[in-house]
Amino acid sequence: MRYIKVHVNGNTLIVPLNTRCEDLMKILRLNKEAYLPIIERKPRPDDCYLNDGDEIHLIRITIHEESVTKDEKGL
């Protein structure tokens, strides 16, 4: 199997070639409804294929977990 390297929110990940945006969300155990994927500075649809070297930002648009630490609560 061939692999590509992508950068997600500053972390480098190795994923199989032909990974789509929604596959990446599944790998990261994220619900795709809760995140807006920005790939190479543009929002992209769920079935967009990732390219080698892509700069990806996953922006949280809704909250699925309650904050646990005082810090996270913004206190």
Binding site: N31, K32, A34, T62, I63, H64, E66, S67, G74
Partner: peptide, 24 residues
């Protein structure tokens, strides 16, 4: 602004998660 309120809690969060899972 895209940030979400970090103080949000309670039933709405659980409902959101359940409905988002249904949508997926």
């Amino acid at each position: 602004h895209f940030g979400k309120c970090p103080m949000v809690r309670g039933m709405r969060i659980r409902m959101r998660r359940a409905l988002d899972e249904l949508e997926v």
